[in-house]
Every structure is written in structure tokens, then in C-alpha cells.
């Protein structure tokens, strides 16, 4: 495997997540062949690529939903590969899964309470509840409503809010813009920036390269299970290969 081309310089930060040579396969089919990436503290990192490049597999392997065949994953200097999600959530990792994965039959409030499933610090939970209502005021209006009756955008907001309710240091987001109106997507990305400003690191998987790289400090481009390019968000956005392949120019 050749080393990926690197664009721009990365702002030095203490490392929060460090993935090294990650291999994942589904039976005989290989999804990831040696993915290495890192997320610094307080950093937004975007993972972009076409369908089937391995973006979701990377995220699922990091959050313990599937077992990598080999490779090393470290969260805050501790090895976490092979640990299941239920052990990673208390260590500060929250995953808002693809397709939102909210409980449609529960109310908005119940969904948010579930986000704090492993926490016992009730006053803090209540404060975080106020915090996410501050981020997404529409959720406060819908608090007693069944989550299934929300619009797509509101469901995505709920999914992100629920992930925030576990009090994470690292937020893994899988395609938050999927199937949403441009205006809603804009709102969501504006709020992600706000969340990040409060010190939460974000690893963002996106098809919408333009949006993702605009928000991200750093980005990785995945192609057929390998990192082919990496670099500063703005630098990637300006690169001709990226403009051609992902931005349709």
C-alpha cells in the first residue's frame, strides 16, 4: 500500500483517537485494508468517500459494533480494539448511527433519557438535557411527541442530541445530512460547529464532501477500503482531484 498523499499542515493537538492499520472484513469480503487515521482533542475530522468505500465500516469498527480483523485503536491513550460498544460509551465515545436509529415508538424525551442510559448523575443529566434543548429548540417543543412523528431533520437532530446525552468526548456521526433539505442540513452543521466549540471532538462520515470539509479541521479520503488522501479540510476542498471526484467539477 502506498502512503496517502498529504495536503497542508495539521495543527498540533493532543491525540484523542488513534487508529492504526485497521482491517475489517465481512466473511470473505474485505471492507477495510489498513486504514490509519487520528482525531485530536477538540478537532473535527471528516471521512469522505464514495459509496462502499468503507466509511461506515470504519465508524462501526471504532465504536465497537463490529470486530476488526486486525489493527489498533486507541482512545485517550488506551487500547480499545475489540471492546464492545457498552464499554466504550462510558469512556466518552458516542455514535449516532447511520439512518438515525432512534426509537420511533418512544417520545422525544424518552429517547433523550436513553442517551444517558449509563449515567447516574441526575443533576448533570438534567443540565445536559437543557443544553441539547438550547441547541435544538424544536426538540423542546416536541418533547412529549412520539419520535416517529418527527420530520427527517428533527429525527436527525434527536439522534445527535441523544448521542450528546451520554456526555461524550468524541462524537461519531454517520451521514447526518442524509436525505435532508439543504436548509436543515445547514442548521445541523452550524450546531455541530457549536458543539465542537464546547470541546467535543467529532469524527464525521459524509457523502457531502463540500459541507464536511468546510466544517472539518482535517479530512481523510477513503477509496475501496484505503485512505488515498488526507489533509487540512480547506486544502482538500481546494485540491483538483477532490473537486473532480466529489464536487462534480
Amino acid at each position: 500500500m502506498s502512503a496517502p498523499s498529504t495536503l497542508g499542515t495539521r495543527e498540533p493537538r493532543p491525540q484523542l483517537l488513534d487508529v492504526e492499520d485497521l482491517h475489517v472484513s465481512y466473511g470473505a469480503i474485505t471492507a477495510l485494508r489498513g486504514v490509519s487515521l487520528g482525531v485530536g482533542q477538540g478537532e473535527v475530522v471528516a471521512l469522505i468517500g464514495a459509496n462502499g468505500a468503507g466509511k461506515t465500516s470504519t465508524l462501526r469498527a471504532i465504536s465497537g459494533m463490529l470486530k476488526p480483523r486486525s489493527g489498533r485503536i486507541r482512545l485517550a491513550e488506551q487500547e480499545i480494539q475489540g471492546l464492545r460498544s457498552n464499554l466504550l460509551v462510558p469512556r466518552g465515545m458516542a455514535h449516532a448511527p447511520e439512518g438515525r436509529g432512534i426509537f420511533l415508538n418512544l417520545t422525544v424525551l424518552e429517547n433523550l433519557e436513553l442517551g444517558a442510559y449509563l449515567r447516574r448523575d441526575v443533576p448533570e443529566i438534567k443540565r445536559d438535557l437543557e443544553y441539547v434543548f438550547g441547541l435544538f429548540p424544536i426538540l423542546r417543543e416536541r418533547v412529549r411527541q412520539q419520535a416517529g412523528t418527527l420530520s427527517g431533520g428533527e429525527q436527525q437532530m434527536l439522534s445527535i442530541s441523544r448521542a450528546l446525552m451520554s456526555g461524550p468526548k468524541l462524537l461519531l456521526l454517520d451521514e447526518p445530512s442524509l436525505g435532508l433539505a439543504p436548509q436543515v442540513v445547514e442548521t445541523i452543521f452550524r450546531i455541530l460547529r457549536e458543539v465542537n466549540a464546547r470541546g467535543v471532538s467529532i469524527l464525521l462520515v459524509e457523502q457531502n464532501a463540500h459541507l464536511a470539509l468546510n466544517l472539518a479541521h482535517y479530512g481523510y479520503v477513503l477509496e475501496t477500503g484505503e485512505v488515498v488522501m488526507r489533509g487540512q479540510g480547506k486544502a482538500l476542498l481546494a485540491a483538483p482531484e477532490i473537486r473532480k471526484a466529489y464536487l462534480g467539477e
Partner: peptide, 15 residues
């Protein structure tokens, strides 16, 4: 939670 959506339950930290 597992009955309603197993992936989401797992993401919440349910064993």
C-alpha cells in the same frame, strides 16, 4: 430498546 432497534440500543451503551 433491543426490541425496537438493536443498533441504536448498542450505540446507547446497552450490552
Amino acid at each position: 430498546a433491543i426490541r425496537e432497534d438493536e443498533v441504536a440500543a448498542e450505540a446507547m451503551g446497552v450490552n
